[in-house]
Amino acid sequence: MTESTNIAPARKGVPLWVQVIIWVFLAGLLGIVAMGLNRAQQGTIQPGHAVDDFTLPLYSGYEYQGASEVKLSELRGKIVVINFWASWCKPCEQEAAELQSAWEQYEPTGEVVFLGVDYVDTEPQARVYLKKFGITFPNGPDLATRISQYFRIKGVPETYFIDREGVLRYVQVGPFTSLQQIQNIIDPLLSE
């Protein structure tokens, strides 16, 4: 490896193992960036996806059948509507009343469960919001943003509809504008 003269040495490339290391390193780097890019481009999880189980702790006063937390897997056989919201989110306020009246309509059937997932919010403010809009369905904080990360939400409000088999069927990005809109999504799932 020593080159002690000014005369150009005989054509000598880079040792193979060094080349391998360089290419592996480059490929790894590009791979990571590609995965990051892919992730950024992905958007929310798509309908047809079987939703993994998660546990949502619930605010006191907003329990589900008296339990202070709810597991998605326990709700198998029911239609689950997961609504991501936050008290600082202005568009969320537009749909709050519609969601609540939909809940009041479906709650008696016992076949539909609404879950409010409070994204990056503080509990006192969340309570003010829930009270202001008279919301009664189960609500709880998205601890460590795990649930929102799983759904890859892009913002609030977003609402995810899961069928009786635990499969995601519909994604609503942005607020609902009418009760009818919510019914149009839930009713077909109910009659399945």
Binding site: A86, S87, W88, V120, D121, T122, P124, Q125
Partner: peptide, 14 residues
């Protein structure tokens, strides 16, 4: 300056 962050600061204060 966002509302969410303002709430967080209030939470810290509390």
């Amino acid at each position: 300056p966002t509302e969410a962050c303002r709430q967080w600061r209030e939470l810290i204060r509390q």
